[in-house]
Amino acid sequence: MNKTLTISPSPHIAQGDSVQKIMYKVIFALSPALIWSFIVFGLPAIFVTATSVLTCLIAEWLIQKFLLRTTPSIKDGSAILTGILLAMNVPGNIPLWIVIIGALVSIGIGKMAFGGLGQNVFNPALTGRVFLLISFPVQMTTWPNVTKTVVDATTEATPLNIIKEGLKNGKPLTELTNQIPDYTDLFFGNLSGSLGEISTILLLLGFGYMLIRKVISWHIPVTVLGTIFVFTGVLWLANPDRFMDPVFHILTGGAMLGAIFMATDMVTSPMTKKGQIIFSIGIGVITVCIRTWGAYPEGISFAILIMNAFTPLINNYIKPKRFGEKQNGKA
């Protein structure tokens, strides 16, 4: 017998999942909502998405090749995913040069500055988005007008904007609710907003797919949305004249997109289920605070980034239950 045998320590088999497969599953899960945004917003949305994805890919490749001098790993799909998520977080009619800046910030500052995939503290797409929101507030909050799947040239405020501005100007809530689309439209995606913020049902479809394929678990999305629902519900019950009802809050803005696709980013969310729940409650609470009392109508991006910053801390203090750990003095 003179065959060479490989000697390596156990285990000798692997489940066969890979980082690449995970990324492509998430992209697949995003596609229904993305395609819907193409239908609603038309060609400009396709340009925005293509620009964002391409910029992310090129930026990652260049940085890995020439700055970090490592083997470029753009095939793992993570840069494509960041590109799509960024695109889904901007208005469909935003100038492309702004998209390029956002993508460069996402990859360059949000990801590579920390050392690449897995090392970053903040969600890269959200880093890009928030940078744009602060730098180009006008363009980032000017939305194409959508009237029952037909886009016209004038711009329209998002439902959250209408409520926020209206309340600030002292209008009664009853008058404002007439100006926003009804909830069936919110659910099926006939409203104005960023590309990926508009169709609740398609985002939920993606969530279902990711649950079945075990890409993510229910903990983060359900807890984030649940927290928003309960918190806004309490406010609404306390004073229905001043606060919108909880259904409105989870159906509008980036709540769904954020809870399902942004907060669940593996790299920037906690490791344990317990940690994930704390993280998610934090996101929910901060989102509602910003929406209700803050300067911006929408707060989930900020909320996720803030909780991203707490993730290392959560990982440090929230440990899984050790086997055989003593509990209440007895084993």
């Binding site: 793992d76 995939l117 593996m266 344990t272 289920k273 440990k319 050790r322």
Partner: peptide, 17 residues
């Protein structure tokens, strides 16, 4: 590859490590 911090190793460890 880089750890993507997916937490799966934590989830599957039978000793809670």
């Amino acid at each position: 590859e880089n750890c993507i911090r997916c937490g799966r190793c934590v989830q599957v460890c039978p000793m809670g490590l």
